[in-house]
Design a binder for these strands. Structure first.
Lengths: 229, 229
DNA sequence: CTTGACTGTTCGATTAATCTAACATAAAAT
DNA sequence: ATTTTATGTTAGATTAATCGAACAGTCAAG
């Protein structure tokens, strides 16, 4: 209904105009880092669609329709921004920039759920604790916190498993290209695998993942850490 | 370095070509729902930049550079998709579509962190439990689970607070327009507020949020639920 | 070997978003 | 009241991505 670019203009006008400051072409141009002529163009389109009112040489005003649309966009922005900052710990400036792009692609439903998730995390000290302590630790050092590992299970390399044995993938520790191949085959942390067949020298190893048979090179299997099921 | 659109083409070629099927112009056109002539155009640009090799009337092949770029994009896609599905519970089809857009705006760093977050959630049964049980419940019914509320604190409407009293915002329960106004003023769940002054009939109410003074209508204050600090 | 039936390519047109440069208006300063 | 400065507008050009339609190449079935 409104192109992403026009959504951006609308959102900027909304943000600049909060606190009822009149918004001028130049403000928008500065905020979005485009030339004034470009803004004039965009405003004309927004006016045609009934989102803003703008008289020649005058201030830009949002219509009711414009305010509604803009606040919808801004809510999405805020949800994404908060998630990036509060949950993932992304620096605010980066989070803001990324949210500016993402906000146009995330649907109303998803945005609402994301907002709820943030809200929930703020309300729930337990969740906060896990995110702020355990996840940060995992992120910075790769350490799997104690609260996560179940008792009495050993960590093994996939290559150490015997035929028929089942295990849960816990970690994949190798360089990008192999890792991405493994990921696209559905081998991701948390998934259950079963060893089907091992060739004489341990290469290849046939495994079962989510009902599919896969054949792994030893080199690949070596970097998959699992926990006995 | 590569426009979002071209990233999409690259990613499609990568996905279509896994399992070493040769990829043809028509496949890409079908996948991206564009005309063949458009694909030819895009492929030409990708070829110029050294991401693919394509002889007239032949198959499309990714170069090493192309594979690296494509798998980077795809990894971002996967991270976003997994987050939407596993954490937020968005239906797969929608998640996939939204991930297609978002993947172009999320930075490498953020994507990595997001992946880690998914990984961590898969590894950590405690976190899973909170997300799959408590968050889902909150999402569906608005119920704040027991594990979240601290003992011995009462829930109140903001209007019930006395001057000078501090409280934590727990829930905002009103229609979009008021809610969005409150959000833009920084009144969000989890934030601490203090009542500064209450006018004779309880309208307006002056409060302090993150060091700023705000004046709220009674109507607005009514729908803010807080917990005594 | 010819002939469909796809598949791929070229070309010209269109649209959205942007720019530059020249011009017009309004507001502020003198 | 005039001039200057900042602001806004217009027009024309450019770029990326797309389309449609006409044309070209490939390959398998007969």
């Amino acid at each position: 209904m409104l192109s992403m670019t026009l959504e951006d203009y609308l959102e900027s006008i909304f943000l600049l105009g909060r606190g009822r400051n009149p918004v001028r072409i130049t403000d928008v141009a500065k905020k979005l880092k485009v030339k004034k002529s470009t803004v004039v163009n965009a405003i004309r389109k927004l006016q045609q669609e009934g989102f803003v009112i703008h008289e020649r040489y005058g201030d830009i005003l949002l219509t009711q329709k414009g305010i509604e649309m803009a606040s919808r966009v801004y809510e999405r922005h805020l949800a994404i921004f908060s998630f990036l900052v509060e949950i993932l710990g992304v620096p605010e400036e980066i989070a803001n920039k990324e949210a500016c792009g993402i906000e146009h692609y995330i649907g109303e439903e998803t945005a609402k759920t994301l907002s709820l998730f943030i809200e929930f995390s703020r309300l729930c000290p337990q969740l906060q604790k896990i995110i702020y302590e355990d996840f940060r630790k995992y992120k910075n050092s790769g350490t799997i916190p104690d609260i996560c590992s179940e008792e009495g299970k050993k960590m093994l390399k996939l290559t150490q498993l015997k035929v028929g044995q089942k295990a849960i993938v816990k970690k994949i520790d190798c360089d990008r290209s192999i890792k991405s191949r493994l990921l696209t085959m559905g081998i991701v942390p948390g998934v259950e695998i079963q060893v089907e067949k091992v060739a004489p020298l341990g290469d290849p190893i046939d495994i079962l993942v989510r009902g599919y048979h896969l054949s792994l090179r030893r080199e690949e299997a070596q970097c998959i850490e699992v926990e006995e099921a």
